[in-house]
Amino acid sequence: MANWIEACAADNIEEEDVIRFDHGGRVFAIYRSPEDEYFATEGLCTHEHICLADGLVMDEIIECPKHNGRFNYKTGEAKGAPACINLKTYPVKVEDGAVFVAV
């Protein structure tokens, strides 16, 4: 059974952007797509464990700020070298203006 944790207010994330969310000693990245949907992935790049919230979001891609590895934040799929290991993704829901992540 999923443990839903409130991550942030929905309006804390601009469209086509990402923020960092820490919980239980883990780092997550919370995204808002251009279509106004919310997504969550593990928050560290699978290549060198750099915080993805410092990266660039374009369409459905997050680009790591260190070596420009790219991931599809909707699916977690690694889309560009040097990143070759997919990100773990997490279910997200929005209720009463808050974003919740199932961890």
Results as ranks from 00 to 15, higher is better:
Val99Cys: 06
Ile5Pro: 11
Ala7Trp: 07
Lys88Cys: 10
Trp4Gly: 13
His49Asp: 13
Ala78Leu: 14
Ala81Arg: 12
Phe100Tyr: 15
Lys66Tyr: 09
Thr41Gly: 00
Glu77Ile: 15
Val103Pro: 07
Lys74Thr: 14
Thr46Pro: 06
Val99Arg: 07
Leu52Gly: 04
Asp17Pro: 01
Glu48Gln: 14
Ile85Pro: 01
Ile61Cys: 08
Ala29Arg: 01
Glu48Ser: 06
Glu15Trp: 10
Phe28Ile: 06
Arg26Val: 01
Ala53Val: 01
Val57Trp: 06
Thr41Leu: 08
Phe100Pro: 06
Thr89Ser: 11
Cys64Ile: 07
Ala9Thr: 05
Glu42Asp: 13
Asp54Gln: 08
Cys64Gln: 02
Tyr38Gly: 00
Gly97Met: 10
Leu87His: 02
Asp59Tyr: 07
Leu87Thr: 06
Gly80Ile: 01
Glu35Leu: 09
Glu42Phe: 04
Asp59Gly: 04
Lys79Val: 09
Glu15Leu: 14
Gly25Glu: 03
Ala29Phe: 03
Gly43Gln: 07
Gly80Tyr: 04
Glu6Asp: 12
Gly24Thr: 04
Cys84Val: 13
Pro34Cys: 05
Tyr73Leu: 06
Cys8Asn: 10
Cys45Asn: 02
Phe71Val: 01
Arg70Gly: 07
Met58Thr: 14
Gly55Ile: 01
Val103Glu: 05
Leu52Met: 11
Glu14Ala: 13
Cys8Glu: 08
Ala83Tyr: 00
Val99Lys: 01
Gly55Gln: 02
Arg32Ser: 02
Ala10Thr: 12
Ile19Met: 12
Cys51Met: 05
